[in-house]
Amino acid sequence: MALKVLRAGILSTIQDLGRWGYQRFGVPVNGVMDEVSHRLANILVGNDEHAATLEMTLVGPGFTLNTDTLLAVCGGDFEARVNGEPLPKARPVLVRAGSALDFGPCRRGCRAYLAVAGGFEVESVLDSRSTFLRGGFGGWQGRALRRGDMLPTRHADPALYPSLHRKLREQRTPMSFPTWSATERVEVLMPGPYLLRFVRGRQWTRFPEESRELFLSSEYRIGSNSDRQAYRLMGPLLLPREPIEVISAGVTFGTIQVPPDGEPIVLMASRQTTGGYPRLGEVASVDLPLLAQLPAGARVRCQAVELAVAQTLLLEREREMARMREALAMRTST
């Protein structure tokens, strides 16, 4: 049971919810950029949310499947076909053995998540299946997919979605899928600017007032040199007259640092574990999946919110995910 890689795409890596527990040894967390899309894709194929998915970037990969495969794709809107027919998104799809699964360029957003029922069969290193590209370990051989790879999948529960199996047996089509789909919040449709809420950090008030006001009142663009490690915010530079000295300490997903060149940087999934630049604050967790889908050039505005507001938003999102998980779990037996 495997996916044979015919085309690798721009950057296709195996990721899960991250390599937690080893940052004190300097090991980055890694994991998916868009947590919500990853979790939803897993839920749709009956997986645990921690199961590894394939994160594709800007231009997706092409595969042939050597076995009937139940899969789901969520996140950015990639052109996707099975034997030339459009692959529907955000729902379970049972694809017939021998079919070609082909992802093209991304039309909206920039990353999508491919989950297969049972998950990908890759070794867990330091308690995670996430690929750590710079460290060269985890995921699929510690690297992005390449043409010719045989990406193994685990055994899937054959009792999932009996109606899809029935339809596939009865029809000649290369895939079967339900008429419903899960609701996705792909906000990356509008021209922007997108609102990024953030919680002010330890050093916020050490920035001079004019820097703080400039940051809050300006529009920034996502820099073209943004990647899984960090997003650069291009716009007015924040250059305090006197350098702000800080002692290096832990950082997190969404930390907004300002290096000496004055260009704010948002740390993302593959960030290092610590940082020594002054920080403005941290992007609210509920806004990180959106940020992860913003391509270079997208416009953003940053708005400060209280910590309690950010945590309430996060708890609401988790309740929403739980409701969706429950509703979708019932459908797996249909």
Partner: peptide, 20 residues
């Protein structure tokens, strides 16, 4: 989730839902 010592500080990562 995890606790990380640095020069003069400790960073604690947590899951707000589980704390709640």
């Amino acid at each position: 989730r995890e606790v990380i010592p640095a020069f003069s500080s400790i960073t604690v990562h947590y899951e707000p839902l589980r704390v709640k």
